[in-house]
Design a protein around this nucleic acid. Sequence first.
DNA 1: GAAAGTCGTTACGCTGGCGTTTCATTTTCC
DNA 2: GGAAAATGAAACGCCAGCGTAACGACTTTC
Lengths: 116, 116
Amino acid sequence: MPIELTASQALGLWHGVALNLVRHDNRDLTLRQMAILLHIYLVPPPHTVRGLAATLNVTKPVITRALDTMGQMGLVDRVRDDSDRRNVIIKRTVSGALYLEKLGDLVREQGRKLPV
Amino acid sequence: MPIELTASQALGLWHGVALNLVRHDNRDLTLRQMAILLHIYLVPPPHTVRGLAATLNVTKPVITRALDTMGQMGLVDRVRDDSDRRNVIIKRTVSGALYLEKLGDLVREQGRKLPV
DNA sequence: GAAAGTCGTTACGCTGGCGTTTCATTTTCC
DNA sequence: GGAAAATGAAACGCCAGCGTAACGACTTTC
């Protein structure tokens, strides 16, 4: 079921979420990092560096570095692919799932708060 | 009229918009900059550096720098307040309004695209 | 009208992401 | 088996944003 938003609702929603993230989220992910993280969790695996780079229209080092950063935060994990040892498979983690769960709640909450 | 979203819809929406911004928006605004921009355009004026800093829970130099950057992009303008010349009033611009209009369209479009 | 307070900006050093290039490892193709 | 291709990471210099600490302009207070 698609969601129909007015222009004002769309911007209000984005505003509310962005504001909330800026004010309270100390993890301070880049929009790129967020897009990567969401992609990993919402699109069926497997995910590779090369695949993500192509999807996001970004160079491979960008993905590598984002994975470095988010890996240190525990939001993501990396495992060598045993069937083709050139590949690295990007794995989800509990922390990452929790982070996105909270993000989802935030979006929903801001949607509910939209002016009547 | 509040918007009711499922968890999956909320994340899917955010994902779609973030992905699209990363792929196509060459302006590459920080989440902070976006929050500032949205606040300027969605909340009734006047807007001052100090006010924005307090609202976003951020130090004043952060606002000054964001305004520098977005000012150069033409998304925002600054004018001295004549009634109290210590203040700077932040003004909207046509470019800024256009940018947010496109952002709103993007959010709406992604909402419409949500899986049925 | 001097002192204290307020506002926005600038200066400083730092951190982290960026793009490009290079590299090591592994696989594919003759 | 050996050249060529593919994959992800590391190295390099660069740029932009960050937080803290000053600073200059202006206003309020006494």
